[in-house]
Computed example of a mutant assay.
Amino acid sequence: MSLARLSTSALALAAVSATAAAARDQVQIAGSSTVLPYASIVAEAFGENFDFPTPVVESGGSSAGLKRFCEGVGENTIDVANASREIKESELAACAANGVTDIIEVRIGYDGIVFASDIDGETFSFTPSDWYLALSDKIVQDGEIVANPHQTWADVNPDL
């Protein structure tokens, strides 16, 4: 199944299960600005392929979207929160406190990191070890697996 079809199917599931959306004409989605372009394309495909209006997709950030999602159930709340991270325990607690208990988390993909510099600027020579030491949650240090202590690129490689 293609990613677009899976995403459209996930959105269809949300539309069918979002009883609050029945009180208004459209499913309401808000959250990650990183996810916004993709979510907008999926919402348009959904609107073109199902007998439901095209969902309304807004940005604002993962935390803002999840905060709005956890405000409660009803026509004045959003139905789907887009996030570029997992939902936090504190957000789940806020949801539960407001009666939002039937939460389905669907992972669509992963974020990426891109490095760019001015064409006339300084050049960088990253090694696979540099990437690992900079991005890994845990590293091997003195034969032990420990939390990654590196805070800056210079911690990883003084030349950076």
Score class of each variant (00 low, 15 high):
Ala83Gly: 10
Ser9Asn: 12
Gly31Gln: 06
Val57Ile: 08
Gly72Trp: 04
Leu36Trp: 06
Ser32Cys: 05
Asn82Leu: 15
Ala10Ser: 14
Gly65Thr: 04
Thr34Val: 11
Ala94Ile: 00
Ile87Met: 15
Ala96Tyr: 10
Ala43Asn: 07
Arg24Trp: 01
Glu48Asn: 09
Ala15Asp: 06
Glu89Phe: 08
Ser33Trp: 10
Thr8Trp: 06
Ser84Ala: 15
Val42Ile: 14
Cys95Asp: 03
Ser63Ile: 08
Glu89Asp: 14
Ala18Tyr: 06
Ala12Arg: 13
Ser90Pro: 00
Gly47Val: 01
Ser62Met: 04
Ser63Thr: 09
Leu66Asp: 02
Glu48Cys: 05
Thr77Ser: 09
Gly65Ala: 04
Ala10Glu: 05
Ser32Gln: 02
Val57Met: 05
Gly99Val: 08
Gly61Ser: 04
Ser59Cys: 01
Gln28Glu: 13
Thr19Leu: 08
Pro55Lys: 00
Ser17Leu: 14
Ala22Ile: 02
Cys70Asp: 04
Ser7Pro: 03
Gly61Pro: 00
Ile29Tyr: 00
Asp25Thr: 11
Ala93Ser: 13
Val80Cys: 02
Val27Met: 09
Gln28Ser: 13
Leu11Phe: 10
Pro53Ile: 00
Lys88Gly: 03
Gly74Ile: 09
Ser9His: 11
Ala23Lys: 15
Asp25Cys: 03
Gly47Ser: 08
Leu6Asn: 12
Ser32Asn: 02
Gly60Asn: 02
Thr54Pro: 06
Ala22Asn: 08
Ser7Gln: 10
Thr8Asn: 06
Gly61Leu: 05
Gln26Pro: 01
Gly74Leu: 10
Ser59Asn: 04
Ile87Ala: 01
Thr8Glu: 13
Gly99Ala: 06
Val56Asn: 12
Ser40Arg: 10
Ser63Trp: 11
Val16Gln: 11
Ser90Val: 11
Gly31Met: 04
Thr34Asn: 12
Leu36Gln: 05
Cys70His: 04
Ala96Thr: 12
Glu48Thr: 09
Arg24Ala: 03
Gly47Leu: 08
Lys67Gln: 09
Lys88His: 12
Glu48Leu: 12
Ser62Asn: 07
Glu86Trp: 09
Phe69Lys: 03
Glu75Trp: 00
Ser40Pro: 00
Pro37Lys: 11
Thr8Phe: 01
Phe69Ser: 07
Ala18Pro: 01
Thr54Glu: 15
Ser59Val: 01
Ala12Lys: 14
Arg24Val: 08
Leu92Phe: 07
Val100Cys: 03
Gly47His: 11
Ala96Gly: 03
Glu91Ser: 03
